[in-house]
Design a protein around this nucleic acid. Structure first.
Lengths: 220, 220
DNA sequence: TACTGGTTTACGGCTTCCCGTAAAAAAGGC
DNA sequence: GCCTTTTTTACGGGAAGCCGTAAACCAGTA
């Protein structure tokens, strides 16, 4: 069962709603914080006190303010929290809708559920928590479509080139940076070939469009 | 006094929270809808029944779904609502943080208050509604800072060029599309000059970097 | 009409990009 | 080791982008 829940969410209204939803499904006194650092502290203390949390519900992006924080993103919080308490269940609740980013949450950060802030998010929260109570991961069905026709898998070389381009490095200067970082291949021709291939694959007709595409998908 | 309030907000959780905040400050049974079209219908009916709303709280961006809608943006709703009931007070509650967009809400759409979905949004909602109850517009102070150190204001011409680039149109072909859409100037030289200016202004050294920047800032 | 200031467009050279071909290097099989 | 296949790099010509200058255009004014 899921009884002890922590909410890490900087928006006051959203935080409130999540509390309400949890109360409605029988979670007594969900705890909540507005900063990642506070969340980590609470998780550590609960663990040490022998009364660890069952579930962490966290946002992805926390806005900076006058309170300087160690952890500034939900992903960092997830990593740290899991290093304290590996079996902690994690639900990410965010407006993020870029498939690549969400995919990474499941693969790299091994989250148990993702619910997008959207039309029926309260209902979906309940469903997701139900799944987790049965020790199942919750993978929103609307995502499956996205992932299946997820056109192309970018490799390290692709990403390196695209990053450099998006950072304003001229194509002809890219080999220099690739060699500096020991990325192979590094020849200008290889860069040209690869970019040409990527544009063809993703039906982009210019580098500009390619960068726009990657930004939209969250690849960059 | 503000007694009769309508909430137009597609996110279920956010909608819930706003209801709660309103109830806390004494609004009895705030009404709420998830679509702009429904909001307009309610406003019209209430007006005709001689029991018009005092305040509309609306989001800016509504996600499209299977229910095809006439109105898809909060701004459209505001215009239509005001054409039905000119004295209706309007509070926009949105995550939008681009100064130009917010500025426009006050100037073009003459909204009475803007509250950004952010850290203390619930408290800010209360303050904003208090102001409006005294027939004062509410202009968040944190906005004033933003507006000042705002790097650069993009105009219609800039956006048109950048869109075309991000859509994969070659620079040399852009004049054709500008002429087609009656955007002036439309010469290739003007396009080159403008792009050069933008890159200089935003310290970007390539079109690719410029597109990446605009995607990051939500300009595209 | 002629003058003026500002904007827009046209032109030319230089650089960078694009893309096909071919040489060089590396990887794998026997 | 040697041969084959694949990957990587080098080169070169044509297209596109970049940037400064000059010409054309277009109000507004006398």
């Amino acid at each position: 069962m899921i009884n002890k829940v922590l909410i890490a969410e900087d928006h006051e209204t959203t935080n409130l709603s999540v509390q309400r939803v949890l109360e409605e499904i029988g979670v007594e006194q969900p705890e909540y914080v507005y900063y990642c650092d506070d969340a980590l502290a609470k998780i550590s203390r609960a663990k040490q006190a022998g009364n660890p949390f069952d579930l962490l519900i966290t946002d992805l992006y926390f806005e900076k303010d006058h309170n300087v924080q160690q952890l500034t993103e939900g992903t960092q919080l997830v990593e740290k929290a899991r290093s304290v308490q590996p079996e902690l269940k994690v639900l990410v609740f965010s407006a993020e809708n870029r498939p690549a980013v969400i995919e990474q949450l499941y693969e790299k950060y091994e989250i148990d559920a993702f619910v997008r802030k959207a039309r029926n998010d309260a209902k979906e929260l309940r469903i997701a928590i139900d799944s987790m109570a049965k020790n199942q991961r919750y993978y929103p069905r609307h995502l499956r479509q996205f992932v299946e026709n997820n056109s192309y898998e970018f490799n390290a070389f692709d990403i390196a080139i695209l990053r450099l381009l998006a950072d304003g490095i001229k194509q002809k200067d890219i080999p220099f940076y690739l060699r500096r970082d020991n990325i192979k291949p590094s020849g200008l021709s290889s860069v040209e070939k690869r970019l040409s291939f990527l544009k063809d694959e993703l039906s982009c007709s210019s580098n500009e469009q390619l960068i726009a595409f990657c930004k939209d998908k969250g690849i960059l």
